[in-house]
């Protein structure tokens, strides 16, 4: 039993409304050029700004930092403001370091289907795995300003119990711009990416630095 298993327990789940209707748009695989643009990503480096709109807070919780991804299952999310903390994921092993609080914890996602699904979806989005996403979500896309906006509505548990929909905004060259996650209880988080660099291999030192769980 681990922290995530208990946090993700159905007993803790809030009462939630049914999934909403999805706006009409084209299926992702029917949008010309989308699949090619949102091609598979082997590595990704980017700066991020995350804004969480949570009902228990007076104002959105905004944090900034950098994200590092290596296909298929390595992720390092380093928050730099307002506090320094990082999440490192390798496979199903997760390490959370809260530097300002001097706390560190390790866990295994294997114990929680919900946590595992949440993380798997993040990895699929960062990796541009539209094929895999299409199997888990109803994926539709529509033109949006200079590129596309993909809307992903979960089809299967456990994500249907947590997420209403995800919206992924892409630049015309397929670069990830923004991921917005709307939860069933009305809370939402928006993560915007800048200075994105894809498919540049990590050095051994970077691998050790970012991806040691």
């Amino acid at each position: 039993m681990t922290l995530l298993a208990c946090l993700a327990s159905p007993a803790m789940a809030a009462e939630v409304p049914a999934a909403p209707a999805v706006p009409l748009s084209q299926p992702c695989d029917k949008v010309p050029g989308l699949v090619q643009a949102f091609a598979e990503v082997s590595t990704l480096r980017a700066a991020f700004t995350d804004s969480k709109d949570i009902a228990i807070l007076d104002a959105p919780l905004v944090s900034k930092g950098h994200v590092y991804y290596q296909r298929p299952d390595r992720l390092h999310l380093a928050t730099e403001t307002p506090s320094r903390q990082s999440v490192t994921l390798v496979g199903t092993r997760v390490r959370v370091v809260q530097e300002d609080l001097g706390r560190e914890q390790a866990m295994d996602l294997g114990v929680s289907d919900v946590a595992k699904a949440v993380v798997a979806n993040i990895l699929l989005v960062l990796g541009g795995r539209i094929d895999a996403l299409s199997a888990l979500y109803r994926c539709t896309a529509e033109p949006d300003r200079d590129a596309w906006r993909m809307t992903l509505v979960p089809l299967r548990e456990p994500m249907t119990k947590v997420v209403r929909q995800m919206q992924v905004r892409l630049a015309r060259d397929g670069t990830l711009r923004e991921v917005r996650v709307e939860e069933l209880d009305g809370d939402a988080s928006t993560m915007s990416f800048t200075a994105t660099v894809t498919n540049r291999p990590f050095t051994d030192q970077e691998v050790r630095s970012y991806f040691t769980p």
Binding site: L7, I54, T79, L101, D187
Partner: peptide, 15 residues
């Protein structure tokens, strides 16, 4: 607040 900034926030905020 720090914990709510982590990816596990959707799970944590239930508690």
């Amino acid at each position: 607040k720090d914990a709510l900034m982590l990816p596990s926030a959707p799970l944590l905020k239930r508690l």
